[in-house]
Design a protein around this nucleic acid. Structure first.
Lengths: 186, 186
DNA sequence: AGCCTTTAGCTAATCGCATTAGCCATCATC
DNA sequence: GATGATGGCTAATGCGATTAGCTAAAGGCT
């Protein structure tokens, strides 16, 4: 194999960094190529298309959030695990809004799409965390969906600049977490 | 004024309908023109650009959701108001996913952008609903943000097909509502 | 060392879509 | 019936994604 300065993975990483800067909607092959110091068509030697690139960013993002959440939950349980996991996710989205947006826009392309296990890993972490609350088995799925909804909703609203009023967003988030925590106990 | 078959408003309405069908990301001037039976450039006699069109759809969407929520809350209070308002919002998003996406993508363009009052009307309805719970004034903003987060999160996840498991999504939503309701009482 | 295959990157060309420029027909009003 | 504003059209521009085909260098092999 000849020189291997760029690989699909390195191109994806550069694209992910770019997308965090300029926003997922503003991703363009031209801009990415410029960043990498190559001409636009050369990108196609590493990724199949812009859609393929976006999909790779999505998988990267899900893998990273999954890792972040799992690491945060490690060794904790109950309220502590919830707080740590939720904060980890919010931090990730704040630092990598473009990647996260890519993750949300993506949809599995087939049954063997690595996107699927990547997203399942995220769900598995949340499930593990929730199990610490000893919920009624029939309610777990609803609790899971509610949890995903709040966290996803908060993160996207914050990333979109949806919280205008000058009240501390950090404070709102810890309030939200304890609100969920208390609800899960009852 | 010559014949007025099309107006900015009617074009926006057609675009909103289109976007609910094909998805906000797939909106194109060409497709809209085809639907209206005119050529693409003619659209520019009614809207300034595709961005302008998207912005108009966003305002329309916010106005409609605002109305829906306000009407649902009318005459109710407490748990009833919460349930009715939340259901109204979810129903709206399910029936008009494209419009709702447009509303989320939009950002005010200036201090006198009609987008601002339209979104404030939505917030005002939620605030009115929350006031029925008699919360501590210092907590209201956090409760508001939490409420927005869950509802927005649930709606977008559902619209994106994020709830895969074959457990009733309707049931999860009512569970979510009563979860929030109970939390707001404590 | 020298050959050969592989392939990253390049230039040139195509295509679709948003947008602009300029022309024409029509309709409302006087 | 003249006239002026305006909706719609065709032609043209430009940009971004994508494809085709060429070139040269790098790694393996003898």
């Amino acid at each position: 194999m000849p020189k291997a300065r760029l690989t699909p993975a390195s191109v994806t990483a550069a694209a992910a960094a770019l997308v965090d800067e300029v926003g997922f909607d503003n991703l363009s092959m031209a801009l990415l190529a410029e960043r990498l110091g190559i001409k636009t068509p050369s990108l196609y030697k590493h990724v199949a298309s812009q859609a393929d690139l976006a999909h790779r960013i999505a998988i990267l993002a899900l893998t990273e959030v999954g890792d972040a959440i799992r690491d945060a939950i490690q060794g904790r349980s109950g309220s502590d695990a919830l707080a740590a996991g939720a904060q980890a996710m919010r931090t990730y989205v704040r630092e990598h809004p473009g990647r996260y947006a890519a993750g949300n826009a993506a949809r599995p392309t087939g049954p063997d799409d690595p996107f699927i296990p990547a997203s399942e890993r995220v769900l598995a972490s949340w499930a593990a965390m929730l199990s610490g609350y000893g919920l009624d088995p029939g309610q777990e799925i609803h609790a899971m969906r509610t949890l995903r909804s709040v966290l996803h909703g908060f993160a996207t609203l914050e990333a979109a600049g949806g919280f205008q009023i000058d009240a501390s967003v950090d404070e709102s988030f810890t309030w939200l977490i304890s609100f969920i925590d208390q609800g899960l106990r009852a």
